[in-house]
Amino acid sequence: MARLVSKRANQTERTKVSIADYAVASDGSLTTSGLGSCLGIVIYDSNEHISSLLHPMLPHRNGDSSRLPERFVDSGIDRTIRSIVDAGADESTLRAKITGGAAVIDFGGDDESIGDRNVRAAHETLSTHGIPIVGEEVGGDRGRTVHVEAETGVVTVKRTDGVNKTL
């Protein structure tokens, strides 16, 4: 469910991104909350002043076209890149920042957590597209809220343990 906040929009316009959702904006801000094992993936073009925020919950869509692409890291990134390029970004100068991927619940066992698998999938998919990751705040066991300034791609991450980071 992409939304492009137009240039006419109020500078304080805040576009909320839900789970399995993404948005592209050229001004105002993009925000998502409740990031546990899910990721907040920011892809932006600071020259064209346009940013996107994707909130996927699982790593791979595995070619199942019946499932919502934004739910998965790999297909969600593909879709988000198409949208931000359609909105005027230059694919060759895109940069990415990733947050989330926590293990808020310890389910026990030796399996790799969904959060870790999501982070790995984001690295792989962004690498395939040739998009460098220039900021990362991932892992741990705390939930996160993410705020993106659309014009600059500056990301503020607020963790529920009180730690705030700017990427």
């Binding site: 409740g34 546990g36 926590a102 969904i114 529920t160």
Partner: peptide
């Protein structure tokens, strides 16, 4: 667990 409700539900839903 101690966190945002949505963050607690996130790995379960995942």
């Amino acid at each position: 667990v101690s966190d945002m409700g949505s963050a607690i539900m996130s790995p379960i839903v995942g």
